[in-house]
Amino acid sequence: MPQTLVEEQLDTPAGKVQLFRAGAGAPLVYLHSAGGESSHAALEELADSFEVLVPVFPGYGESEGIEDIDGMEDAVFHLLDLWELLELDAPAVMGLSLGAWMAAELATRYPEKVGKLVLVNPVGLHIDRAPIAEMFGRGAGELAEMLFADQEHPIAAAMHAMDDFTGDVGKQVEIPIEMVLPMWKAMSATAKLGWDPYLHNPKLRGRLRRVTAPTLVVRAAQDGMVPAAHAETYAAEIAGARLEVIEDAAHWLPFEKPAELAELVRDFLG
């Protein structure tokens, strides 16, 4: 039975952060994407077999503390604090996009803190002639084109409807602040982690050999943001990593193919 994740609050050295949790069993930490999602159907399904923990990163949602975070090094220190607070030893760690990059940063620097690693449409690498598409300064509709294979998906449709309210302020008419604020905050926090270098760490690729956790890399076949070479490189550089491709999905794969993703992850984590 899928389970709804329940919100808690954690006092971390960075500040108060939100934590969403459900299920029982071996811990599975999910690191969200630049969208700051605190749950999705794949996680609800996985909560049937695991204790799913979703910490909302500082600057996203209502989590505090982005002021003192200026890049992935600071992000990893924040994760170390979270591991301590949650009494986690070497949990399974799953990340989507930005969260997958963050998980890889943790797993290269502190391999012993990651039991198993699941990277879904990861960013974090720079690959010549396979650039990650620009996500900043775009309207919600343009982002939806990158994130969804199916533009009729309810979230994609809602983003297209929001088009008049984001992106180019000069073209806006009446803008309710509640409507733009969550995306505004998420983009601002993402800029602190990935504006320059753009969504990657030039050192990361050479460090992937340090990952010791069994690793599953999942790529969406229609990802409009991150070219296939990125997932393929992760899978090639991490010893023993397995690469899986899910069809009919784009960058926000967990929202389009939650059941398929949950099944892959459940099988992999065992």
Binding site: G137, G167, D168, V169, G170, M187, A189, T190, A191, K192
Partner: peptide
């Protein structure tokens, strides 16, 4: 003018 209002995050 078009393009002058592009919003950088943060």
């Amino acid at each position: 003018l078009p393009g002058i209002t592009i919003q950088p995050p943060g």
